[in-house]
Every structure is written in structure tokens, then in C-alpha cells.
């Protein structure tokens, strides 16, 4: 058996960013776990939607109430998608695949950007799907309470754009955290701690913590969408400040990872 060179099949091969993103998407879609994560995310959100017994909207507030209620189920999918994103990064080291990834894509920043882009795409798709299905479920189940859809209403768009945007930014942050720490255990602890534990610490009497919650991803997320779907927020810093804060989290995590990777061994 000789390794005959068929140069025609690879002669024009070149590393491109688009190729790197396609590679990361293939890494995602060729694992069974992606189906589980997607189904569980949708399932959990719908379960919360359909088992809740809300007091209906006030008069004149029907469509805003409807879309806000539809966003209430996003908390768990948000955390799941963030953890999954972090694990896509740390998985390179736990499997040893980083040796091949950094041969094909030696520039660590290109690799990081490609992985963050792939996770952003996946998270965007799933979060929009979760939201759309939750919206449909809310309209169907609570129509007798007055649930209505009004796509011309500003709040509807604030939710429909804001929720996926928050999920995407958080997933990008999680990829950065994963690449920074390389360890699955540390990354998951950091992500879950940041998204789901710290925000609720204020409830346990730590007042000063309760006030910085507005600047955690959960608080910033709530401020962006104008609803309490991402956590418990005593302060509303407004959608624009919230966006800057969340941007700082995701860009900051990726910059930290980039700086760390530059100086260290793979």
C-alpha cells in the first residue's frame, strides 16, 4: 500500500477563517450530545411555560405580558448553553484533540474566534427556537387570560432580539473562560457560579453582593430585555449600559484567554 499523492485533491488547500468556523461547527454537529442539549433546552423551557399558573396581564398590557412570560423559561437553557459552550472549549484538552486543532489552526486567536463563532451560531439558533416555541405555547395556553401577539410593539422586539443576544454573548464568554482555564471542572464551576449562584447570593443576606448583581451577566441580561428572566435583579441599569456590561464580560473573557494562550504551552 503506497501513499500515492493525489495532489489534485489538496493542491489548493488553504487555511481560512471560514474553514476554521466550518470545522468547529462540524465538531459540534458530529457529536450525539448536541441533540440532547437542544432537546433538553427546548423541553425545559416549554415545561416551565406550560406548568406555570400566572396571574394574567393587566388591561392594555397584554402583548408585553405575553412576550415577557414567553421569556421566563430561558433561564435554564441559558445556563445549559453556556456550560455546553465552555465544555466545547475545555473538551479540546480533555480529549487531547488540541494537538491536532493547533496543528491545523496554529494561531490561537483564530482558533478561539472560530470556536466562539460556532458556539454563537448554535446558541443563537437554539435560543431563538426556545423563545419562538415558548411564545407559541404562551399564546396557545393563555389566550383566555388575554395573551396576545403584537409584533409591532417595541417590547416584543426587545425580548426577541435581546434574549438571543444575551444567550450568544454569554456563550462567547463561556468559550473564553473554557479556553482560559482548560479544565472542564473549573470552567463549569465558574460559569454556573457566575450565572446561577452569585446572582442569588444576594437573597441570602449578602446585601453588597445583591447590588453588584446588576453588573453580572444575569443582571445585565435582565436590564437588556427589560424583564427578570435571567435572574433576580434589584437594580435596573437600562438596556444600553446592560449591553456594555455584557459585552465587557464576553470580550473580557476572550481577551484573557487570548493573552494566556499567547504566553503558555498548549
Amino acid at each position: 500500500m503506497s501513499p500515492a499523492t493525489k495532489t489534485s485533491t489538496v493542491a489548493n488547500a488553504r487555511l481560512t477563517f471560514g474553514g476554521a468556523v466550518r470545522s468547529e461547527l462540524l465538531k459540534l454537529t458530529t457529536m450525539r450530545s448536541i441533540w440532547w442539549i437542544t432537546i433538553v433546552s427546548i423541553g425545559l423551557a416549554l415545561m416551565i411555560m406550560l406548568t406555570s399558573s400566572p396571574a394574567g396581564p393587566e388591561a392594555g398590557n397584554e402583548s408585553a405580558w405575553t412576550v415577557t412570560h414567553a421569556s421566563n423559561g430561558i433561564l435554564m437553557p441559558w445556563v445549559i448553553l453556556a456550560v455546553y459552550s465552555a465544555l466545547q472549549a475545555t473538551g479540546e484538552w480533555s480529549s487531547g484533540m488540541y494537538r491536532v486543532s493547533f496543528t491545523a489552526v496554529p494561531n490561537r486567536n483564530t482558533w478561539l474566534a472560530a470556536k466562539a463563532t460556532a458556539m454563537a451560531i448554535y446558541t443563537g439558533v437554539v435560543s431563538i427556537l426556545v423563545l419562538a416555541l415558548s411564545y407559541a405555547a404562551t399564546l396557545w395556553k393563555y389566550s383566555d387570560l388575554g395573551a396576545t401577539a403584537d409584533l409591532a410593539e417595541a417590547h416584543t422586539w426587545q425580548i426577541f432580539i435581546g434574549v438571543p443576544a444575551v444567550c450568544i454573548a454569554t456563550s462567547i464568554m463561556a468559550v473564553g473562560i473554557g479556553a482560559l482555564v482548560k479544565s472542564s471542572g473549573i470552567a463549569v464551576t465558574a460559569v454556573v457560579g457566575l450565572l446561577a449562584v452569585l446572582p442569588f447570593a444576594g437573597l441570602f443576606g449578602l446585601d453588597w453582593l445583591a447590588h453588584i448583581t446588576a453588573y453580572l451577566p444575569s443582571g445585565a441580561g435582565d436590564s437588556i430585555i427589560g424583564a427578570g428572566s435571567f435572574g433576580v435583579t434589584p437594580d435596573d441599569i437600562g438596556p444600553w449600559v446592560g449591553s456594555l456590561v455584557l459585552l465587557a464580560w464576553s470580550v473580557g473573557a476572550c481577551v484573557a484567554a487570548s493573552v494566556a494562550m499567547k504566553g503558555r504551552d498548549a
Binding site: 485533491t9 470545522s23 462540524l26 480529549s95 491536532v100 491545523a104
Partner: peptide, 27 residues
């Protein structure tokens, strides 16, 4: 040799890396 995600098939592992350089399925 342990540089592969265990749950991925051999072909998909190769496809994923071929994609970085636009290398065809034929290769």
C-alpha cells in the same frame, strides 16, 4: 494517538479537520 474525542467517528474527526483548509471529502 489519544488526540480524538472518543464519541466522534473516525470519518467525522477527519472531516472536521479537513474543513479548516477546505480539503475535500474525496481526500
Amino acid at each position: 494517538a489519544k488526540s480524538v474525542t472518543p464519541g466522534r467517528t473516525a470519518r467525522n474527526h477527519l472531516r472536521a479537520f479537513a474543513a479548516t483548509h477546505g480539503i475535500s471529502k474525496k481526500r
